[in-house]
């Protein structure tokens, strides 16, 4: 596999990114999201990652917020892969989170780099059963337009404008379907006693 790195290899994007242009930041966020997510979710060194989605996603946001600071954007040299650069920022951000938050403090005086949930097999089984039930919602959406919008908007995160353009629908129509799907999801959860 070729050693490619978007921000390193695309000088125009890099210049726009360094200038803080919104479109460039958006592209960098989308392309490198998984890098920040892996640092927060899988960890590094002795840190095995945040198990809780709230902490994990808080860390992802903090990593990108730090990476989008003017000083951090300026300091990327454009020669090394941005993946490695972002990973470095991510590790520093996570270390600071672990140091700052008393929830992550260990009592043995060692740096807190391991924060894992207690084993709870029973709860895991209940969760697995619940998720099996909930996954049936996806199968209940069979109308082609609704199914496509469910996939493209909710799963893949495509923007409304692009969706409307790509599907030959008005934006109003797309919004109506999104709202309809949202109502159906909430109703489904309620019917199964999950909301």
């Amino acid at each position: 596999m070729a050693d490619t790195d978007l921000l390193r290899d695309d000088a125009k994007l890099r210049a726009a990114f360094k200038a803080g242009e919104r479109q460039a930041l958006s592209e960098v966020y989308r392309v490198y999201y998984s890098v920040a997510h892996n640092v927060a979710g899988r960890g590094f060194g002795n840190f095995r990652g945040f198990w809780n989605p709230a902490d994990r996603e808080d860390a992802v946001q903090a990593i990108f917020a730090a990476a989008f600071e003017p000083k951090a954007r300026d300091s990327y040299n454009g020669l090394d892969p941005y993946t490695a650069f972002l990973r470095g920022i991510g590790q520093n951000v996570v270390r600071r989170m672990l140091e700052r938050d008393a929830r992550f403090k260990r009592t043995d005086g060692q740096p807190e780099l391991e924060f894992r949930p207690p084993d709870d097999t029973e709860q895991d089984l209940i969760d697995a059963e619940t998720h099996t039930v909930v996954r049936r919602f996806r199968e209940s959406v069979s109308e082609p337009t609704e199914s496509a919008i469910l996939d493209r908007y909710f799963v893949e995160g495509e923007a409304e404008e692009k969706l409307a353009e790509g599907m030959g629908l008005t934006r109003y129509r797309v919004r109506k379907v999104i709202a309809l799907l949202d109502r159906r999801m909430r109703r489904f959860l309620k019917q199964h006693g999950l909301e």
Binding site: L25, S26, Y29, R30, Y33, H37, G41, P53, E57, V60, Q61, F64, A65, F68, T130, H131, V134, R135, F137, R138, L150, Y153, F154, V155, E156, G157, E158, A159, M185, F188, L189, L194
Partner: peptide, 25 residues
């Protein structure tokens, strides 16, 4: 639950969630 309903990866925010996060950022 939201991710499970979409048939998405449970460990990773859905595209919709990532859109929310990106907008905020």
């Amino acid at each position: 639950l939201h991710r499970a309903m979409l048939g998405a990866d449970l460990e990773m925010p859905s595209g919709f969630e990532r859109g929310r996060m990106e907008t905020a950022l």
